[in-house]
Simulated scan of single mutants.
Amino acid sequence: MRIVKFETWWVQRNECLFDGKRQGKSQMPWDVVVVKLTTDNGIEGIATALAARSGAVTEAYLQDNIGPILMGRDPYDREAIWHELWNVDRHLGFFPVYLPGPVDVALWDIAAKAAGLPLYKYMGACRTQLPVYASGLFHETVQQYVDEALHYKSLGINAYKAHPPGPYQLDMKIHQALRDALGDEHVLLTDPVAEYSLDEAIKVGRQLERLNYLWFEEPFRDFEVNKYRQLCAALDIPVAATETTRGCHWGVAQSIANDAADIVRADVSWKNGITGTLKIAHLAEAFGLRCEIHTTTMNYMDLVNLHVSCAIRNCEYFEYFVPEEQFRFPMKGQLPIDAQGMITVPEAPGVGAELDWELIHRQCVSYKIIEEQGGEG
């Protein structure tokens, strides 16, 4: 079996999902590039690539630097291809962090479809379900956080993660208001995506301990390893880190070796696909840590996250980015979450989800193809 075709569709969304503080003065459309690999026996591997800020950059890297590596290759040579992409990344001066992952996902999708198995069983099944936590966007008022958490509680989802906007004093008000409104039994988490000082993070962390939050995520930039080490030593609440750490499992290993994370984070978009995410999860397991998989902000790739989470033991929750309709694009249908707040992994071969190809073609601004015989469009 060989890869004979590599196709990409740059699909525009014409909307931004984050607040002005995080956009800066540059535009931040949350576009998607759809990736399809086709083999000589007609099996298709499909993934979606995040194209925030510049779909043109994402598309160009895929077509100019990654597509040619794949042509004519055996899709079962995932590990060799994965390492070759690392070598290219080293000499190019770094791909966007979310670029190699979708290609790796497409290779796994081909292999699982060829085997007639859902991805999680092809990897090696551990379970079929996970509880979800609703993970909201940034809001302007304390009450908006409370209202959102109560809404998803009414749908049977008994865990909620806030992304408070800062400064830390406002974040602490949000933490308290959520516990007061949701009650002692509701699972609460927080991810300020912050730039706290060390003393601010300790102050917030001790409040979270008093309020019985499940974990405290990303109070600093992930490269601030020494601050994380001191914070982990000062607090009892688990500190989650490494969401944006470069270097896949090699990068995460530095945080683990320096006692700079109690929980590590990974996903199939930002951590070099299924291959990279499994490496991180197994590394964390060897050190007795959880690897909590974080959203890709694309429902299709989040289903791939779910497959990985059901093939490992050291992940406790599924991150459900809300409101869902903003992250469904361009997948058909909703995520399979039931009235008890559990998500069940699909059983169809491969990823087990369909993309909305009519929508993709309607909103596509650029389509490119590389074929084995040398034809390129």
Rank of each mutant, 00 (worst) to 15 (best):
A311D: 05
L189T: 04
G156K: 06
I280Q: 04
A233E: 13
Y122N: 07
R265E: 03
Y317S: 04
Y152L: 01
Q334H: 14
T275G: 00
Y120F: 13
I46A: 02
L62V: 06
R229L: 01
C126F: 04
P100W: 04
G247D: 08
Q334L: 15
H361D: 11
L107W: 01
E185T: 14
A353T: 09
Y98P: 01
M172H: 05
R265V: 07
L137F: 11
S309Y: 07
I157D: 01
L211I: 01
E217A: 03
I256F: 09
D180T: 13
L289H: 11
A286D: 10
V193P: 07
Y152I: 09
W30C: 09
A134P: 09
G101E: 07
P346L: 02
R328V: 13
A51W: 10
N87E: 15
G350K: 04
T58A: 03
G375Q: 11
P219V: 10
P219H: 10
A162D: 06
K271H: 03
K279S: 05
H307S: 07
E7L: 13
Y320C: 14
A181E: 11
G55K: 00
N258S: 13
C315F: 01
E140I: 12
A257L: 15
F138K: 11
V88H: 02
C126P: 03
T344E: 07
Y61N: 04
G93M: 12
E354P: 02
A201E: 00
Y228S: 05
E59S: 09
V252M: 07
A49S: 14
H175W: 00
A51R: 05
G375M: 12
K332M: 07
F329V: 15
Y76N: 15
V105F: 08
R362I: 10
P75F: 00
I66R: 01
N258E: 11
K332Y: 03
D259Y: 14
T245L: 05
V252R: 04
D180E: 11
E59K: 08
H294G: 03
Y228G: 00
L99G: 05
R179D: 01
T128D: 10
Y317P: 05
F223R: 04
Y196H: 14
Q129F: 08
V204T: 02
V304F: 08
H361M: 11
Q129V: 07
A266H: 00
L155D: 08
A261D: 12
A106E: 01
D104E: 09
D259W: 12
R210D: 10
